[in-house]
């Protein structure tokens, strides 16, 4: 009898408090500022336009281009196969499965790298993996892939190879046509591998 009164005196006030306070729905950041800074310094989030173009030409199913500009800009021009997630909608629940996954390589792009980098930084701090940023954004993309400049005849072979690859990619992806320059086979640009994600499910239990 007395025990029940003590129990009630403890749990009812606690229950009233917890009923009165708002629920804590904040999502914790998974990376510390230092960890993020070191990743930013190394620039591991960047994918060069060549690497992205390579995946696009090969029609690699693991590539997912994500346009983080406004939907208005997205409708005017977007890269083939890209989906539109405007930066302000980045945290909406409908996109969580796209951003937090371990089967695709997500590449954010905007006009320059700035907005895409912001998107990457937010998702990275939430602990999401496999998100990257198109280096230089659409501006640099147009410069390098869509309208590659023919290197000087004295340029090293790698330069020529890169030019050839860009020309091919440009033709395949609908850029301006440019004349061919003789050079050896191009080497494949470095493409990051998809990192498997540890399933964040706690252990089951029972009575």
């Amino acid at each position: 009898m007395k025990g029940r009164l003590i129990l009630a005196a403890v749990v009812i006030p606690l229950g009233i408090i917890i009923a009165a306070v708002p629920e804590n729905t904040t999502k914790p950041y998974k990376l510390t500022a230092e960890e993020l800074l070191s990743e930013v310094k190394e620039g591991t989030q960047f994918m060069t336009p060549d690497a992205v173009a390579q995946l696009m030409v090969e029609k690699d199913p693991s590539l997912q281009l994500i346009d983080v500009r406004s939907s208005h800009e997205f409708e005017k021009f977007s890269l083939p196969g890209a989906i539109n997630i405007p930066l302000e909608n980045l945290l909406s629940a409908e996109y969580e499965d796209i951003l937090n996954q371990d089967v695709k390589v997500n590449v954010f792009y905007s006009n320059s790298s700035n907005v895409a980098n912001q998107a990457w930084m937010i998702t990275r701090q939430l602990g999401y993996q496999n998100n990257y940023v198109l280096e230089g954004g659409l501006n640099y993309w147009a410069e390098t892939i869509m309208n590659p400049q023919k290197p000087a005849a004295t340029s090293p072979n790698e330069e020529m190879a890169r030019y050839n690859f860009r020309q091919g990619a440009s033709a395949a992806l609908g850029g301006a046509s440019v004349e061919q320059a003789a050079a050896p086979e191009s080497k494949a640009a470095a493409v990051p591998a998809v990192k498997a994600q540890k399933k964040k499910k706690s252990v089951q239990g029972g009575c």
């Binding site: 749990v11 009812i12 229950g15 917890i18 009923a19 009165a20």
Partner: peptide, 17 residues
């Protein structure tokens, strides 16, 4: 809300006790 549900369950439990 979870908090209100908890308060209700506490009251129901004490009633059951």
């Amino acid at each position: 809300s979870r908090g209100v549900m908890t308060l209700l369950i506490i009251l129901v439990a004490l009633g059951m006790f």
